[in-house]
Design a protein around this nucleic acid. Sequence first.
DNA 1: GAGCGAAATGACAACGCTGTCAAATTGGCG
DNA 2: CGCCAATTTGACAGCGTTGTCATTTCGCTC
Lengths: 348, 348
Amino acid sequence: MKSTINDVAALAGVSIKTVSRVINNEPSVRPATRKKVMDAVEELHYQPNLAARNLAGTRSYTIALIYDNPNAYYVIDMQNGILEACKARGYELLIHPSNAKSDTVNDELRALVEHSKVAGVVLTPPFSETQSVIDEINKLGLDYVRIVSSGAAEGDEENCIQVDDTAAAFDITQHLIDHGHKRIGFLSGGEEHVSTHGRLDGYKQALQQAGINLAPELVIPGEYSFDSGVAGAKALLESDNPPTAIFASNDEMAAGALFAARLMHVEIPEQLSIVGFEDSPFSRQTWPKLTTAHQPNNEIAKCAAALVLNKARSKGAAESAAANKEAGITKKFVPELLVRDSTGDSPS
Amino acid sequence: MKSTINDVAALAGVSIKTVSRVINNEPSVRPATRKKVMDAVEELHYQPNLAARNLAGTRSYTIALIYDNPNAYYVIDMQNGILEACKARGYELLIHPSNAKSDTVNDELRALVEHSKVAGVVLTPPFSETQSVIDEINKLGLDYVRIVSSGAAEGDEENCIQVDDTAAAFDITQHLIDHGHKRIGFLSGGEEHVSTHGRLDGYKQALQQAGINLAPELVIPGEYSFDSGVAGAKALLESDNPPTAIFASNDEMAAGALFAARLMHVEIPEQLSIVGFEDSPFSRQTWPKLTTAHQPNNEIAKCAAALVLNKARSKGAAESAAANKEAGITKKFVPELLVRDSTGDSPS
DNA sequence: GAGCGAAATGACAACGCTGTCAAATTGGCG
DNA sequence: CGCCAATTTGACAGCGTTGTCATTTCGCTC
């Protein structure tokens, strides 16, 4: 039924080692031989057994996605993107949700390597921005790719897929300013995320460039959640001198802000403009639909996965190939402004 | 660094086979020996290597989750539940999104078995309700658990985790009836889902029991999506004799209905009541918050995973254990009515 | 067409575990 | 105290690959 490398070798009339060479794209196989083998592979629908490969080889065919993110859409997008890249190259993906608070990631990482012989990992915030995690990974000799907010790439650009939160936040804020808004509230994400600071920076830069003074009371701390968006927007709207627009650090918070506005009978966008960030599916399902910044998570994930996979692969093969193959992999993304219905001209 | 079964055997002063027996909980090991081995395992932090196990054994330590569902929350809940169960038993989970339309599942299933030696699968709708898929799985000799709408369990209750959509839909409809609603619109999910029919049945039964005639024009076909909810609700509201309440087959459709209502300046719940189904996180983030039926997906997934895992395990061990272990596994769930703010008394 | 270095191929061990089956140990009983 | 059956333990092969290293074949040169 299921064919092994032996079957292929027999059919092609070569040794199993030669088959191994062909399927691993190693050099030193004559074209004629290679063809014979490939034909046999084709005919038998041969697929190398992963367990055997992982066991025998020095390199492994499994990578892991490590995350701690309550946002289902984000996780799914990431996951699907990585899965695509894996499938294309015959790799397997281990999903590993963890807990940033509990501080057990490092142990889990070690277990992942020893227990399942993982070759590489894709790290998402906040792990991707935590030094101790990166140190551990280096100690373990794992290949990795960090999906980070630009600020966190430091001297490690090689291993990072960057999202330029600052530039995108600048654009968003500018959009608000263009509509005549001068008092713009800012709902912050969690302190531990570098993106929180990046987005705040973009907001500040846009204000400054427009000659608008930063009003510290308009910047509300929060944590990337719906409830936090509700609370933040409420605080803002109940203040003495409420803003005419609110920049929520992500779509969930924006949805929360929308909820708060509704609660307080504030019309959107007539009396208040609200923007989000990420372009989550539900930013299209709110009323009104949210103006936001499109963050292509699926694409980001695909690039991240392709990057780790190339690394893992280039270990054995020609190192030079690495740079070569990175062509087609985008390493820096700038979420693009997406104007929908939650923003309009300033009422004042 | 990483210890193998040999290290444990050496430290415990026994053969590797005995160690194997202990870690697999096989009988025929004297308590004293067992303890020696367990101490050694402890001391070395030994964890069996999964690739080796999968390669050597007849049984495997990997299961797969097969799904085709655009609802990120659903998938994540399922996934996390299964992951928990897997982790507890040292299993690995392969995530396998597929496409019900493309009809490639069967091939993919086969590849999963041959390529990765998967031992069992958890199937979610619509695959769990597709006979050809189930046939293929049986042919492959895979253990499986189907998460299905009650109607689809047929004579295969043993392998099913059932969700009683009919009972839950009945309760929801009853809730509406209790509030004086007599014209209740019904927004259907996709035809291919058995749950669609189950929910419709519950709706019909409640109407009948209350002596309300079914108005066929109030039942709108759709497909479990936001857009479909918008369209369905619009059609209903624009009709000559619009309903005073709408039962949307899931929360996404309900959110769509909310959107349509807003568009048409219909106040919820004053002029129209809307209910959803599933208790997705965003049913709490709409305005107003949705009345819905709480479907405990995470719990369902955990039970499903525990069930496949028990099956895979009991293969070698005492068969009798199976029934025993199933204690604690719920096999039938009835989503519970959750009254929030989108329903109220009938205006008429 | 003999000789040589390079390229292509193959034989075989090893990866870490489980399954099979044989060997050793145990305990009960006459 | 010895014998036998039952229980416990171990030796060894094998799972399907890859890595190492030896062997064969090839393409030239003179």
